[in-house]
């Protein structure tokens, strides 16, 4: 379990704690107004100057001596902010974690607050100009997004029942999207996304700039050398470049230091050769999120 489970997990994983989904929590944090402010102009988030600095050319800025280190430190602080005077237009306190599909379904069926909606993926829209119905939002955030026409899918249902939402996530998983659950802002949970690098803003900041906008899952993938037939199906599913085929061994190897534990390889292996192992059970990978 990560630090966020210690803080907001009530003894378990942060995203399985019912309190983090509750209206009481959203109300006590005054989130209706906060999220409305954040979502109205969300697409400006990388361009807007924050304390005099925007994300434009972030890779260069992070490489500057001293300034780069200060910038990284303040960006991490912002991403994980729990302070009372959080700023919605900076997306303070907004980060998430990769989860396997079975946990996403469990959340949809039991924990997510109604109303549950499906809407266009913002990242794909702002970075690829593509409208793709795939994000599942719930609780207070649903009613905020419903006021913003650009995210509302045409010719399809917006509000979903629990089973329908779980089915949408499963379909996205089948397509090869990584399932992620989000604090927005911490500790309130109101979204499960089906992400794809590099146009996912969260994965971009993590994979290209090493910022902890997305944590690795509570699991990592392990391949059974006796069951693997070397068909390579799993490799195509990994967005993190963690799997390769070894011509010598005639099977795949998983680089567990790269593995985010999304389970996509496991979900598509025709020979049941991959399983997810709890990160906590491995002395080397434990704590490495």
């Amino acid at each position: 379990m990560c630090d966020w489970c210690m803080k907001h997990g009530a003894g378990g994983k942060w995203y399985l704690n019912a309190r983090n989904y509750s209206y009481e929590l959203a109300e006590s944090m005054n989130l209706q107004a906060y999220l409305e402010e954040q979502w109205k102009n969300f697409e400006q988030v990388y361009i807007r100057k924050i304390m005099g600095i925007s994300s434009i050319g972030l890779g260069y800025k992070l490489r500057m001596p001293i300034i780069g280190r200060v910038l990284r430190w303040s960006a991490e602080r912002m991403i994980h902010s729990e302070s009372r005077n959080r700023n919605p237009v900076r997306a303070d306190g907004h980060f998430g974690q990769v989860i396997p599909i079975e946990e996403a379904k469990l959340i949809m069926l039991n924990l997510a607050a109604e109303p549950i909606i499906q809407n266009y993926c913002m990242c794909r829209m702002m970075q690829k100009g593509i409208k793709d119905v795939c994000c599942i939002n719930f609780g207070v955030l649903s009613t905020v997004i419903e006021k913003l026409p650009r995210f509302i899918p045409e010719n399809t249902k917006v509000r979903l029942g629990r089973e329908e939402a779980a089915a949408v996530l499963e379909e996205q998983n089948r397509k090869g999207r990584v399932t992620t659950v989000w604090f927005q802002p911490v500790p309130y949970i109101c979204a499960i996304c089906s992400c794809e690098a590099p146009q996912c803003g969260g994965l971009r900041l993590r994979m290209d700039f090493g910022l902890h906008t997305v944590y690795k899952a509570e699991y990592y993938a392990e391949v059974d050398p006796d069951l693997c037939q070397g068909c390579k199906t799993c490799i195509a599913g990994c967005q993190f470049g963690a799997i390769r085929f070894s011509p010598t061994l005639k099977r795949v190897l998983i680089d567990q230091s790269k593995c985010f534990g999304c389970g996509l390889c496991r979900d598509r292996c025709p020979h049941d050769a991959i399983r997810l192992v709890p990160r906590d059970e491995n002395p080397v990978l434990r704590g490495k999120y």
Binding site: N41, E43, Q44, Y46, I47, R48, M125, M126, Q127, K128, G129, I130, P198, Q199, R204
Partner: peptide, 22 residues
Amino acid sequence: PRQCSKCLQVCDPAVFVRHMAF
């Protein structure tokens, strides 16, 4: 740019962002 967005689509590393004007 909402009527075009070609640059967004052809750029593999997804360098561009389309956003509302300031």
